[in-house]
Amino acid sequence: MEHITHLLSDYVLDLLPAEARGQVERHAAACSRCRQQLQRERQLTHLVRETMLAAGHITPLRLVQLRPPLRQRHQPWFTRQSWQKGVAVMAVCLFLFVASLSLHPTYNAHWQNGAVPSVIAATATITPLPATATQTAAPSPTSTTPPQQTPGAAATPVAFLWPR
């Protein structure tokens, strides 16, 4: 009887096709030597499993201690969805584009040529109270001195948004 020891490892490791498995089982039923060898192969598998179970034992309490914190509900901006990151990047790009336009010398020169006012001012108009309006005399048509400006009569620049 020809022994099949070369097939036993593969049999235990489930590496044989069904036909060869049947051949091993039939032979092992009739051959004590191959049966013992097969038993040793199986023992190794069980021994590794038992060793892993014994060595890798960990108490439930320790597992609870090791449990990581749950997913953060309020995620920081850099971990958010990709579309949000895209919007943020676009906003930064837009800001940089506008800022670069304002600092660009040719663009500034174009503004200074009179196409648009070189100084943009925010103005505020205050309507004078009726009593104050009656006290202020209207300038005489013959008077050469310019009329004195009242605080509310003319536009007053309050802020320069685009200084030259």
């Binding site: 892993m52 179970l53 060595a55 890798g56 960990i58 597992l63 090791l66 449990r67």
Partner: peptide
């Protein structure tokens, strides 16, 4: 977690 721990160990 026990499975993953044993594999890691």
């Amino acid at each position: 977690s026990p499975l993953i721990y044993r594999l890691n160990y």
